[in-house]
Simulated scan of single mutants.
Amino acid sequence: MKPSLLGLTLLASFNCVAEGALDLHTLSNNNTDNLVWVGHLSPDTDSVASAIMAAHLYGGIPAITENPNPESQFVLNYCGIDAPQVKTDFSSYQIGLLDFNQSTQLAASIQPESITAIIDHHALGSSPIRLPQIVSMDIRAWGSTATILTESAGRLKVDIPKAIACVGLGAILSDAVVFQSSTTTDYDKRYADKLAKIAGIKDIQEFGQQMLVAKSDLSHFSAESILTMDYKNFEFGGKKVGIGVAETLTAQQLIDRKSEFLTAMTSFKKEQGLDYLFFSITDTKNKRANILWVDSQDKKVLADAFGTAIKGDILVMDGVTSRKRQIGPAIQKSIEAQ
């Protein structure tokens, strides 16, 4: 197996870590009575599952910032495990962050001084969370935060229960788009196999396909809800940028609602004070992004990002499926070059 590069791993290598930081190496050093694990705004399956996994592994309680999306709820139901508690006020807790490191994706009530650890698999972007204290960080160039936590459980000799292994597997399959995404690593495949064995899931591909079907059924949601269901804020070149994604096997159903999305995007961009807003209807069946924008300013950034003359009111990009590795970085480069 070829080794995957570690993007960044900052872990204490001594018997204890700096005061206030969570020890990711030695569990007995931690007091987790007031610890909450939470992921980014608009939580996806990796954020939901990682909160459950981290609380089991390190202690504390899992939380999410809003109700699970359809795919996450399917995974929770399939695995027979309750969703983490939805919290809006984190002001009285110590916080472990999962699946992000950008201030634009941080719940408003989380104070930086309350953060004790960050476990993530994303790049350190242009607006990282600024911390007044040293915290423990484990950031790796793997396809899922759940993959990192599975490896950590093995290293710390913590058994993973069947239901938690099941949701962890769901998280890896979600972020890796059932191993079709360009972000997939050999580590994701290795630890997905391990979790599947624990969970008693014999056919990983079948489970993944059921997840894709659950994610694709968005017919009963409004355009406004779909726009922000898998949505992230960024800061590129000092500009506020929003990128929403809907991954679906039935892309044409959403493309047919293009006018609804454009209306919703126009209102959302103004309400949020965004400089740029993009929305990708990502066709997971044909591995294709169908990207929408609001105005001529957005259109110019998009044309520069992908080096193409845009004809019509939707940009179709074959082979583009990942916001993290393809869409986001291209848009960032375009904006920062202006």
Score class of each variant (00 low, 15 high):
3 P>H: 07
189 K>Y: 03
243 I>F: 13
177 V>G: 00
193 D>Q: 12
253 Q>L: 11
261 F>M: 11
313 D>L: 03
155 R>S: 06
284 T>M: 15
248 T>Y: 01
142 W>S: 04
131 L>F: 08
237 G>H: 09
218 L>W: 06
1 M>I: 00
267 S>W: 03
236 F>V: 03
288 R>S: 13
48 V>M: 07
125 G>Q: 14
242 G>D: 09
162 K>D: 01
227 L>N: 07
176 A>C: 15
56 H>Q: 12
271 E>P: 00
202 K>Y: 12
208 G>P: 05
162 K>M: 09
20 G>L: 07
310 I>P: 06
78 Y>K: 15
159 D>Q: 14
48 V>Y: 02
265 M>A: 08
57 L>I: 15
319 G>Q: 11
300 K>D: 02
6 L>Y: 07
219 S>T: 11
302 L>Q: 12
42 S>C: 11
121 H>K: 02
234 F>V: 07
314 I>R: 13
89 D>K: 04
224 E>H: 11
286 N>C: 02
43 P>N: 10
328 G>M: 14
44 D>Y: 08
304 D>H: 11
255 I>N: 03
183 T>Y: 00
291 I>R: 12
127 S>C: 12
225 S>H: 14
291 I>P: 10
72 S>P: 07
270 K>A: 15
32 T>N: 09
296 S>L: 13
251 A>P: 09
170 G>V: 07
119 I>H: 04
102 Q>K: 14
168 G>I: 07
273 G>F: 00
331 I>Q: 04
16 C>Q: 09
85 Q>K: 15
81 I>W: 03
170 G>C: 06
17 V>A: 02
259 S>T: 13
122 H>P: 10
57 L>M: 13
249 L>K: 14
218 L>M: 09
256 D>S: 12
337 A>L: 00
3 P>I: 06
177 V>P: 00
27 L>E: 03
201 I>K: 10
182 S>P: 10
172 I>K: 09
220 H>W: 01
34 N>L: 04
158 V>Y: 02
30 N>I: 01
229 M>A: 12
136 S>Y: 06
226 I>W: 09
161 P>Q: 06
171 A>K: 02
18 A>Y: 01
211 M>F: 05
188 D>V: 01
38 V>C: 13
335 I>Y: 03
110 I>S: 13
97 L>A: 08
126 S>L: 05
310 I>L: 15
147 T>M: 11
152 S>K: 15
91 S>K: 04
247 E>P: 09
50 S>H: 10
294 V>D: 01
209 Q>C: 02
60 G>W: 11
226 I>Y: 14
54 A>G: 06
118 I>A: 05
286 N>R: 10
334 S>E: 00
13 S>D: 08
285 K>D: 06
204 I>Q: 06
256 D>C: 02
69 N>S: 03
326 Q>E: 15
196 A>V: 04
125 G>A: 13
306 F>A: 05
44 D>E: 14
89 D>L: 09
97 L>V: 13
225 S>Q: 14
312 G>W: 05
224 E>V: 08
19 E>C: 03
223 A>R: 10
82 D>F: 06
